[in-house]
């Protein structure tokens, strides 16, 4: 045992001498180090020329001659045992039991093995940490916006233009689930409903005409042209909710029937 330890010590001394060289160099540049030397650095006190050349047989002899162990410094290198003592005099606060777990124990059912959660209070962040957190969050948001809108910044100078600013704003609104501004205030929103319906109907008619003429002449159209515009089915029964009248409109405490409703009931 002692032999093994001695060997370890001698082998460890070689890198420690290198450490000493580094240390001297460091201290020459930056001033002396106040730290207490590390456990392995204690070997430095020995002259580096003697320690690495110790053959193991020599050590054995040395151990045999010094029986009282005064110069047996093999065990000195091992760090002192760390003593951990638990203080049982003051018990920890009991883990908080929820009322539900209390009830479950005292109910007539056999108690289930639900684990009681030991609540540990997280330390409150200091004001500086909180400020740093807020700053980081702000930077994070800015970075994410930059990444999502970077396709608008193809030309390095164009991002300042009003058009690109508006596009970026629109993209943000859509990302948040809103309606794009163009739909709210553009030409489409200003056209009256009846005229807009007429426009779409005319578009459909024109597209249908194109398709039928192409079919007759044996022309294959592109897929986008072949596609029919989706027609909303108007004759589908509307879900009116509970209590609403199936016929007519209920307004101000009176059921108002239009001419068409009456005709529908007569038929």
């Amino acid at each position: 045992m002692s032999l093994k330890r001695k060997r370890d010590g001698s082998s460890a001394s070689a890198p420690s001498s290198v450490d000493a060289v580094f240390r001297r160099h460091f201290e020459a540049r930056f001033g002396s180090i106040d730290l207490s030397p590390a456990p392995t650095a204690r070997e430095n006190s020995n002259p580096p020329s003697t320690t690495p050349t110790h053959p193991p047989s020599d050590d054995d002899e040395k151990d045999g001659s010094d029986s009282d162990g005064s110069s047996w410094d093999g065990i000195d290198d091992t760090p002192a045992p760390e003593v951990i003592s638990y203080d049982f005099s003051k018990p920890l606060p009991p883990p908080s039991t929820k009322p539900s777990t209390r009830r479950s124990f005292m109910s007539s059912k056999p108690p289930t093995s639900t684990s009681t959660t030991i609540t540990t209070t997280t330390p409150k962040p200091t004001p500086e940490e909180a400020a740093a957190d807020a700053e980081n969050l702000k930077h994070d948001l800015a970075l994410r916006r930059l990444l999502s809108e970077s396709h608008l910044l193809d030309n390095s100078l164009s991002h300042a233009s009003a058009r690109h600013r508006q596009q970026a704003l629109d993209a943000r609104i859509v990302a948040l689930g809103g309606t794009p501004l163009a739909d709210l205030s553009g030409a489409a929103s200003r056209t009256p409903m009846a005229i807009r319906q007429g426009m779409t109907r005319a578009q459909d008619r024109r597209a249908e005409k194109l398709r039928s003429s192409a079919r007759e002449n044996g022309i294959v159209l592109s897929k986008s042209q072949m596609k029919k515009t989706k027609k909303t089915t108007t004759n589908k029964k509307r879900d009116r909710g509970v209590g609403a009248p199936a016929v007519g409109k209920f307004r101000r405490g009176a059921l108002i029937l239009s001419r068409r409703d009456v005709a529908g009931m007569r038929a």
Partner: peptide, 8 residues
């Protein structure tokens, strides 16, 4: 109490 703290 000296062995465990979760006692009720």
């Amino acid at each position: 109490n000296q062995f465990i703290n979760d006692i009720y």
